[in-house]
Design a protein around this nucleic acid. Structure first.
Lengths: 339, 339
DNA sequence: TTGTATGCGTTATCAC
DNA sequence: GTGATAACGCATACAA
């Protein structure tokens, strides 16, 4: 019942704790017979060394903290899944924290993770995606970064170079928009996101540029911001539906809004893709589950997590790593845009 | 850069570490002036006490481990989300571990969590859901349970009473099946799961009983086991499609298989629900995203996590808690079964 | 109100 | 090969 320690083992084996520690970590030769004896006692008591005490002296906890904005959006669990696989392989354990992109929760988790002596941090969403991030919040991260390595996924800290792995969202957006144009669309809408997140602005920038490249006009009224959830997508599409001369194709900020948008359109009696083409972003498992299946852009979510974790690991090992790793997105053409 | 300790703070403030500790935890009165001085120094250095050292003496880590079988099935992240909310409120931090229902990974994580001195465990899937669970694996959990509290979600350990919170899956299945029968279906199929998991068998049992209750024959060939994923659902439905005299309604083991099944059916030119009714289980966010929307059974996934965490917390506080908490499922009727 | 000394469970540095 | 013993960073009983 009560926790057994190296002392208990040592006493029972008539050896010192040092010797027990030696067989535990085999950090020095131990006579075979005593080793056997000790091992037997350890197994008998199912003794497990206290990782807390161990970490206290090693200064190694093997723990990594990961902050994501929204675990109900499969994209993030997918990234986490990748990171977890890599972490497992590298001998680390991941702490998953859900921030809802709320700055206060981020700060709370950040300090909690630091207190627990995580050896590294993976950060997504919230402040690393905010257009106007209060300087204090930037500074908080910068301070932490001076002690423990941090890798940002699809994010950055204005004015402060960070290690980051990111999808080329600009290129990804170009791909879909060009695809829509190639399908004959001349009147394309942009749905979801908001003007305060950098990924939204980046995608919008690519959206406009691609229109321009094809000599198409950009109409401000064809851009409807309003969030990242399925419901947001639904509401925004409802608004598109009331427009006179509405777009024939809609690029959504992500798969979730796209799905909401699709449902809205269908409930308005609009056929997809015949009457309206819809595209998403992220290629979450949902996109292929839909009916019709959703055209989208793959960010290689899992790989994003794997790479971040690998880079973090090398950072922890004090290895040299290049600051920014960019993953190329891939256009996944499915039914929702195929005329 | 280097980590600052209570000693550093104490030295700079010309006090002893004891006094610093006192203002940190205000565990004893400290003169206002010295407190101010100490606080100033703490803030200046952004000092954070090392939770490892603290936990080592308190014997409290505030950490909870949670094992789930599959983070790509939204049901589990939803449960986790609930647990996380409750944990946050109760002052605990959750460790999420993905086992893929693999016994070895479970054991690995289990011992890792114990070494890290988690104060409690929430366990889903894998061995607590296995029909034939090797005794050694049962014993492993039982042993841990003698030291730290464990709450099982939708699971049990044969021969060993455990704290558990569970959905009444039997009742839930009855609800859907009766609904299908009420819709006029006389020939109903059962799709997904496998004969080695208790939840599958429980649902199947309710399935058969409900048929019997309505004087309907149970045909063994209308039961197709084969997993829990979207793809599994797709393949199994493919098989139903080739059957002569196939069912007019299919109950799927969960939402994921249901979605796969739906896609298969549609690709075979079968209309839902006109030609075939399909129902799922879990009421994950996907079910309402589908087109047509999926009839399913809500397990109140988030609440499941919240309750488990609450119970665990009370267990940690040595309070008296009743062994089994049952949550009533709820039938969610949507388009996929509405003729 | 404050300081001293000890323990928490390990690992590591010495000697032997 | 093996055994004392000093860290690790903090909390706390006991003194003062």
């Amino acid at each position: 019942m009560e926790s057994v320690t190296v002392y208990d083992i040592a006493r029972e084996a008539n050896v010192s704790v040092a010797t027990v520690s030696r067989v535990l970590n085999d950090t020095a030769p131990v006579r075979a017979s005593t080793r056997q004896k000790i091992i037997a006692i350890i197994e008998k008591h199912k003794f497990q060394p206290n990782a807390l005490a161990r970490s206290l002296v090693n200064k190694k906890t093997g723990m990594i903290g990961m902050l994501i904005p929204d675990s109900t959006n499969m994209f993030f669990p997918e990234v986490f899944g990748g990171a977890e696989i890599a972490a497992q392989k590298l001998g680390y354990t991941l702490f998953l924290c859900n921030t809802f992109s709320n700055f206060d929760r981020e700060s709370e988790y950040l300090s909690q993770l630091c207190e627990r002596q995580v050896e590294g941090l993976i950060f997504m969403g919230g402040r690393v995606n905010a257009r106007h991030c209060p300087d204090a919040l930037v500074q908080e991260v910068v301070n932490i970064q001076s002690r423990i390595p941090i890798v940002l996924i699809n994010g950055s800290l204005p004015g402060n170079p960070c290690y980051q792995v990111k999808t080329d969202e600009y290129a990804g957006t170009q791909l879909v928009v060009q695809h829509l144009i190639n399908q004959g669309h001349r009147h394309i809408g942009f749905l979801g996101g908001n003007s305060e997140t950098t990924t939204t602005l980046e995608k919008l920038r690519a959206f406009r540029a691609t229109l321009a490249l094809n000599d198409l006009h950009f109409h401000k009224k064809n851009v409807l911001f309003g969030g990242f959830s399925m419901q947001n997508g639904h509401h925004l599409m409802d608004r598109f539906m009331t427009m006179t001369n509405r777009p024939t194709a809609i690029l959504c900020i992500n798969d979730y809004t796209a799905i909401g948008a699709m449902k809205s359109a269908i409930s308005h009696g609009v056929r997809i893709p015949e009457d309206l083409a819809i595209a998403g972003f992220d290629d979450t498992q949902l996109s292929s589950a839909m009916n019709p299946e959703l055209t989208t852009v793959s960010q290689h979510s899992e790989r994003l997590g794997i790479r971040a974790m690998e880079i973090l690991s090398r950072l922890i090992e004090k290895e040299k790593v290049k600051k920014v790793t960019v993953l190329e997105p891939k256009l996944i053409i499915r039914q929702s845009t195929q005329s």
